[in-house]
Design a protein around this nucleic acid. Structure first.
Lengths: 249, 249
DNA sequence: CGGGAATTTGCAGTTTTTTGAATGTTTTGG
DNA sequence: CCAAAACATTCAAAAAACTGCAAATTCCCG
């Protein structure tokens, strides 16, 4: 494996998972830990990641203090949120999952919008409450402290009783072969229910997460009606998704 | 978990919740208290938070929150919350309403407590999420922006399906003649359901609200099992309530 | 194509960092 | 004033980082 190739691999992994461990990488790529360490140091010098004892972290992971580094991913999510918000019209019933991208959407809603939002995400609901003209339906059940959404069969049943006009999913991984994938069983179940219960499924993700996959299957690519990323509509990365029949925004 | 990762986690939590406890963090992240303490000291040196005995506070807390309005009533509510928290034992199912007094209760819960809390109050649930050993069931339905709890028939049905060991109601008015009264129809419905679904009903209120009444009837005085105020157990104000068969704490 | 320079990589020994535990001291709240 | 909780201090083991060096690889230029 070439050095550049290895570094590209590391960088992708850092951006995707927000952290990498030196030991783990050295086993994965089959090089010595020293080599990994030197790679990480080099890339840290180039500003591509943040070196820490034991591995490295992505910029977005790092702190609010380093506003500069955080803005990148944040800005992307804001631009995604703006596009997504433009799809919502007065009177609509909108189902949303949780996650940081959805939070940006919640913040980006135009103040005049009169719609009904349905969600099991506690932070998202808090955000929706700030909007004067929005009605909120909260999906109840056991609260997952990890993802801060409600999970479980009750929640799924409640979602299934709804027929929403549109749903927004913040997704963790998507590729053409595996479709939308994730890594938390309970969250996957909720997302499946959301997809079933809405007429139009919109997936939101930053482009870094495209063409990656995780262990659990959420839905096939053909169940996704629209994909919103921070990229321009005719970015080459998106072309193959458009060909697969997904609308791009 | 990497050190920096851990510190980032702590910092997020401090900024979100304005305070962290060392014990709680060490249980949550599964490291020794010494490690947490060293982290907090380090971050305090960097000016990211304020170290205090037992944990740490956010900067915004020390500045903004201290100047905040009524420390008097706050103190009373804290003392009420402490009494209330002492009633909760491991393994219990606890139903709670919303309101500021309940929020204090949520903050006052001992970190080691292992119980299941059921509530439709969004701020309360947020608070419960900070406790590592507490399971949370969120009651879903329409969200009332006013009271920040879920209201409606769905919520009531969900509550009715529960048989809780104990319930805590933050109440707005109580007197001997009218019992517990309130002024929001939807909230009253929820409180009625809570009372029906729990074996023991505990009412929390600051003494100012005693011997006052509001238009809507929540429950009669004989349905209240215990009354907790900031007053001493044998305060004359409480005597007549004790005579009416209510336990006083 | 060839040989020397530059780069990359792994290794061994040493140093630093991190963490948990042990000990004694201070703070806290009743 | 007392007991429990939190703290500071010190020590030791383990993990990771650094250092220097030599072998392997790649690159470059004639």
């Amino acid at each position: 494996m070439l050095k550049k190739e290895r570094q590209a691999y590391i960088l992708r992994k850092v951006n995707l998972h927000n952290k990498v461990l030196s030991v783990q990488l050295s086993q994965e790529i089959n090089v010595s830990e020293d080599t990994i360490r030197r790679d990480l140091l080099e890339m840290a010098d180039e500003g591509k990641l943040i070196k820490v004892h034991g591995g490295a972290l992505s910029h977005s992971f790092s702190q609010v203090n380093f506003i500069k580094s955080d803005v990148y991913s944040q800005e992307n999510k804001v631009s995604i949120a703006k596009k997504a918000a433009s799809l919502i019209q007065d009177g609509m019933f909108v189902l949303t999952s949780g996650g940081t991208t959805i939070m940006e959407l919640a913040k980006a809603l135009p103040p005049g919008l009169k719609a009904t939002f349905i969600s099991g995400s506690i932070p998202a609901v808090l955000e929706y409450m700030n909007h004067p003209n929005i009605d909120i339906i909260l999906i109840g059940d056991k609260v997952s402290k990890n993802s801060k959404i409600t999970i479980g069969s009750q929640a799924i049943n409640q979602i299934k009783r709804i027929k929403a006009d549109i749903s927004f999913l913040g997704i963790n991984a998507i590729d053409l072969e595996n479709g939308v994938t994730d890594n938390d069983w309970d969250v996957v179940m909720i997302k499946k229910a959301i997809i079933e219960s809405s007429q139009k499924v919109i997936c939101l993700t930053i482009s870094e997460k495209m063409n990656t996959f995780q262990p659990l299957h959420v839905c096939d690519i053909n169940q996704v009606d629209m994909l919103i990323t921070e990229l321009d509509k005719d970015d080459p990365l998106l072309r193959q998704y458009a060909k697969a029949g997904i609308e791009i925004l």
